[in-house]
Amino acid sequence: MTLRVKDLKVYYQTLRGDVHALDGVTFDLADGEIMGLAGESGCGKSTLGKSLIRLDSRMRHVGGSIELDGKDLPIADDDAMVPFRYHEISLIPQYAMSALNPTRKIGRMINELLRARGLRPADIAEELERRLELVGLDTDVLNRFPIELSGGMKQRVVMVMSTLLNPSLLIADEATSALDVSTQRSVAESMVEFRDRGYVKSMVFVTHDISLVYQMADTIMVMYAGRIAEKASTSTIINNPQHPYTQMLISALPEVGSTAEETRLEGIPGTPPGLLHPPTGCRFKDRCPMAFSKCNEQPPLLEIEPGHWAACWKTG
């Protein structure tokens, strides 16, 4: 088991109180698993992605643990996390377009980073060039400044750079959101290829684009208002979702071949609850058509069939 997250709670500190962005998140990630992490804006998916590598100054670790390859991650201790970063856990950020220092040539920046992490750039140079070619980039990009590259090229440079040390876990936070559809596809395919070649052991792919995740992920985890709604294999989530939220989310996606005249796509009425003072019980109950009195108690996340977890009184 690569990654084991247990009852993780991470709050944002604000002047008006704590925002419960992650409120008891528990899941496992197997070796070689690519997990799509989906949900609406503000459901905590990016917070979860960040919590696995680096809490920013407003984020506070309140409880729960993260275990990677049998070792506990000291996520609350910024300095103690440093040895894990890049070597064990790496990140393709949401802002990959601007993740490179604009005034350094890309090759030089990578070398400086490697040296700062106690590695000899010369040892890795060959591997770096091979991987750049693998994602379809000319090794000449190392002599270029970021401004000379297109968005898709920068994205791929960041991908190669982030995975250069073969991390156990790669977090891709909306890594393809800023790209056009065809580039999205090729980046997603390269990510799968990186996993297949063993450059990364497992991957958490944070996205709001379920159709993209469907093409590349082994499993999908759906979050709602700081909690996990459902986690299952990709085909189960798409074809046979159990949690009412997942069902409504999937039915809101257009299907190939269908036209708007036949069926009008339904959104999910209502808005997610504020997380400053989250409601008790199931957080989806106000928008859920199947809600009943039991929903005032918090439903536990249960394994309803092997590898299929859901948190709903109706499914358990």
């Binding site: 920013d56 990140l91 802002y95 993740a99 982030s162």
Partner: peptide, 9 residues
């Protein structure tokens, strides 16, 4: 880029 470098330790 500062955030990215920090995330990479």
């Amino acid at each position: 880029y500062s955030n990215y470098l920090q995330a990479l330790g």
